[in-house]
Amino acid sequence: MSKGEIVLGALAPHPPHVVYAENPDQNEPVSEGGWETLRWGYHRLARKLETIDYDVMVVFTPHWQTYVGTHFLGVPGFSSKSVDPVFPNIFRYNYDLEVDVDLSEAMCKAASDAGLITRMMRNPDFRVDYGTITSCHMMNPRWDKPIITISSNRNTHYYSPEVMIEQALALGKACRTAIEESGKKVVLVSSHSLSHRHFVTESPLPEDMSKEHIYNHSQYVWDMALIDLFRQGKMREAIDIMPEFTEQTIAETEGGGLVWMMGAMGMPDYPAEIYGYQSVIGTGNCIAAWVPQSDKREIVL
């Protein structure tokens, strides 16, 4: 068996608004569109993924929040309806997905061997979180590959951003070990926004783009500072400023997704592919991808 590898890692924000705007059959509410800059970026990334050979998508989500360790999906398939508790008016999505339980178990074990607290999630009634569903739908709307979801352990709140970073890096390294031993080709997905201050009101038409803008200029400047480091391939520096970025913009990076992915990918020192940046209900969202194989890497935007 050849050595498994990570073929691409994506920062894939999951505001349910982008799925709502797409009007897929699976989602009940109907929209007039909206947030095209993000959606077109996702379409571009989805087209690229169709040219890449991979076996499974591994998603780290901040919307499966666990306090007692890190949990991994451990049921072969889930079929249910996901209703967003915060935006139920725009996201009621019927899903039917497959899980790569073998790799999930292997990552869980590797993380446990590395000293992290872990648990497999074996309850078939469990509802997969809307972050996972949104990111996966936008990256692979055909849902023809199995997925794995990893929960986000709430270290930032329980301890500090620094503790979160230590643990997320260790988790990433453990996942990489398991992936390499599995022989599989894997796409990693860090499912979250950057700056994360929301408006607390909503337009009568949520997709009214004349009302959409970043919550404030400070959020925007911070987001751009981070994206600039992505472009330059300075991920060590990006992780170094993560505690301050997270605090200043109450960023969704607090869950640890991007840090986990960078840990798994060995802290890339090459430029990220940038697919788009747009605000959604005030939050800052960037789609970016890191591609280890240099001949597959592009300048997108």
């Binding site: 949990h71 508790p85 935006f87 074996r122 309850n123 009634d125 509802r127 929960s151 607390v200």
Partner: peptide, 25 residues
């Protein structure tokens, strides 16, 4: 938690099967 103001549950018959994020076992 909510973001868009304050939400009140109003489904006359709220039915489903829930599983806790941490204590699913």
């Amino acid at each position: 938690p909510s973001i868009i103001g304050h939400q009140f549950q109003a489904n006359p018959n709220s039915e489903w099967v829930h599983v806790d994020d941490d204590f699913h076992y």
